[in-house]
Amino acid sequence: MTAKTVHKNLGLSEMSWRSSLGVTKTVLIARFKIVLRYKGAIVFDMILPVILAALPILLGVAIAGQAAAQNFKDATGTENYKLYMLIGASTFIVVTLMLWLVGYWIRREMETGTLESVYASPAKRVEVLSGVTLYALIRSLMAFAFAMVVGSLIFQVDLFQGELALALVFVVIGIIPLWGISFAFGALILKVKEADSLIQVMQWVVAFFMGIFFPITVFPPFLRFVALSFPPTWMTNGVRASLLDVAYFFGTWYFDLAVLLAFAAVLPLVGYTVFLKTESRIKKNEGVGQF
């Protein structure tokens, strides 16, 4: 195949690994600049888990009084119900942020009209996506860490117990499959008219199943199965088990971590494939920028 037109130049474009990194970095920085200009958005991320955790804690104390800790220990294995709730709520914010920031990304760029401009540029999808992913990762880890610290001060619980390093490993590994899920979900919401409502509901369905306030062992078998097929459930329980006297699903930390690793190995691939499929579907049908 020979070119049927003249070739002049590529303007100022210089394709190199440095400029590829530049794309990722620029996207990352731009995202942070944008969110920082929405007053209070980041602070809300960090405060929300504390508020969420406060509710069941207050409720539990109201119901069980002085027996709260003992009853809770009987039900979950730990009497530290405050930290238990705080971990659940902080993990939840990670899940929510990934859903919104990664899953809703294409849709949001479509709504603002910027997707077309991004797609008309020579930057590779992977480079732009890396920027978006890094942004989501940093923001959700920040929210997680901050919520845990502030929450531990407010509820007066000690974070430095159990195996903190292992807990962090569970958080980091747990985010990887979330990325994949978010993309698959992102593809789904492109087809739905009321995408933001769907995400709103989804985040609470997820919250319900991942057991942010209670052990999933209270579920009947079928619901338990649904909950266990969802990586954030393993992530939450892993963090709890490594910090508190909560049991791992498979008895030991390395089995649970292995399950999470398996999710981490498979789901991003699934997510990325779905993403590419979605992209080509859009380009075939309505075209980038329409929805």
């Binding site: 409720l59 119901i63 709260a68 009853n71 009987d74 039900a75 709730m85 609470w204 306030f213 209670f214």
Partner: peptide, 19 residues
């Protein structure tokens, strides 16, 4: 649904406290 799920979660949490 959001709110309903939230309430449901709290109810389950109550169970954990007073099971």
């Amino acid at each position: 649904l959001q709110i309903f799920l939230m309430v449901l979660m709290f109810m389950f949490a109550v169970f954990a406290f007073s099971s």
